[in-house]
């Protein structure tokens, strides 16, 4: 982790930093933080992802308007809201996955550890390298379990010991014990929950800083869901996690902070409230949040 951040601070350079707001707040903390495990103890609010006045259009039709969010490092941040509120769209902005959809335009900034990812000279491929993603439906490649995990590392020119990396990633994803004797079998032979953990292992293997999860349990049964939730809680010591969920209980169970989004009549998603999870669920400051969490709509 250290190597990355130093490299980043080097590259960002003083000149750019001066122009950016919030920069002075983040940079010292980035430089200081040395070990993910220790950070769990004193959870200072280091901002990992700074979303600033983000709006997005699909071929001219606005989907998100003016969303600003500071997502803390090494915590789990949940995005909740009724379907169509733009929470998945927002999530997919964080690793520029929306670039793949023709006709998407956006306004505003997203900075990951201070670096603006939508600058013209930033390569979306490199962004996604650092911001892993786990999808709604488990989507292992039709390759062996081993190759599924090794894929990202291979294409990113990993120079270390691949066997160790695969093992470490599978262990971290709590899947190693179940698949250690059948690494050469197709990833598609696993159960749904195992597939989803394989996808998490695949994301971990490229050592991203951030993991985005787009309703990762929506296709899973309750037992598999619980295993994933346990895993998410374990992973937050190492990664910044942003999870979109339509399940409010899940948000309450796994997340540290929760953002509630809502789309009005005109189907444009806006951020309503962003608070520590406990606070949002027990004492929401906005009446619309209260209506939603008490089940009055959505």
């Amino acid at each position: 982790m250290l190597g990355l951040r130093l490299a980043m601070v080097d590259a960002v350079g003083e000149g750019i930093m001066d122009k950016e707001e919030n920069r002075s707040l983040e940079v010292p903390e980035v430089a200081i933080s040395t070990n993910g495990a220790e950070e769990l103890e004193d959870r200072t609010e280091t901002v990992a992802i700074n979303i600033d006045a983000l709006s997005l259009w699909y071929t001219g039709v606005q989907a998100i308007e003016n969303v600003s969010l500071q997502i803390p490092e090494n915590q789990v941040t949940a995005l909740i809201g009724p379907s169509g509120c733009g929470k998945s769209t927002l999530l997919r902005c964080i690793n520029r996955m929306n670039d793949l959809i023709p006709g998407v335009t956006l306004d505003g900034h997203i900075k990951i550890h201070g670096e603006s990812i939508y600058e013209k000279d930033v390569d979306p491929v490199a962004v996604r390298r650092n911001v892993g993603m786990v999808f709604q439906k488990p989507n292992p490649f039709p390759k062996s379990i081993y190759e599924n995990v090794a894929f990202g590392a291979r294409i990113n020119g990993y120079k270390g010991n691949m066997d160790e990396l695969v093992r470490a990633s599978l262990e971290q994803a709590a899947l190693w014990d179940e698949v250690s004797d059948k690494l050469s079998e197709s990833g598609l032979t696993l159960s749904g929950g195992q597939q989803q953990r394989l996808c998490i292992a695949r994301a971990i293997a490229v050592k991203p800083e951030v993991i985005l999860m787009d309703e990762p349990c929506s296709a899973l049964d309750p037992i598999a869901t619980q295993r994933i939730e346990d895993l998410i809680r374990e992973l937050r010591s190492t990664y910044t996690i942003v999870i979109v969920t339509h399940n409010m209980q899940q948000a309450a169970r796994v997340s540290d902070k929760t953002a509630f989004m809502l789309a009005g009549e005109e189907r444009v998603g806006r951020l309503v409230e962003f608070s520590p999870t406990q606070e949002l669920f027990t004492n929401p400051s906005d009446s619309r949040t209260e209506d939603y969490i008490t089940g009055r709509f959505g």
Partner: peptide, 8 residues
Amino acid sequence: EAAYGVGA
């Protein structure tokens, strides 16, 4: 998307 997601 899975492949793009790991930076391919």
